[in-house]
């Protein structure tokens, strides 16, 4: 059985999973991610993965955000 409370990059989650943001990796996109509402403590729901496997769409707050897996991996979440 997988560890239920492990911290993983957001890009690793599957569609339908819920998680809480733990931290953002510092990088080029950190500010962009934050202004889109991706902040530590926020709850997210992985709404869909694009049919080709990338990008993904997540529900955060009251809206749907789509981002590439590469970008999502800068967001660390706890399942």
């Amino acid at each position: 059985m997988k560890q239920p409370h492990s911290v993983v990059p957001l890009g690793k989650l599957r569609a339908g999973e819920t998680a809480v943001i733990v931290d953002l990796e510092k990088g080029d996109l950190t500010l962009k991610l934050m202004e889109m509402g991706l902040l530590p403590g926020e709850k997210i729901f992985v709404d869909m993965v694009a049919p080709l496997g990338d990008p993904i769409s997540i529900k955060i707050g009251n809206y749907l955000l789509s981002l590439r897996k590469e970008e999502a991996n800068a967001v660390l979440v706890r399942r």
């Binding site: 996109l29 962009k32 889109m36 955000l65 981002l67 590439r68």
Partner: peptide, 11 residues
């Protein structure tokens, strides 16, 4: 500039 995708899917 570095390309990024990050965008809202509006209702």
């Amino acid at each position: 500039e570095k390309s990024y995708y990050l965008m809202e899917l509006p209702i």
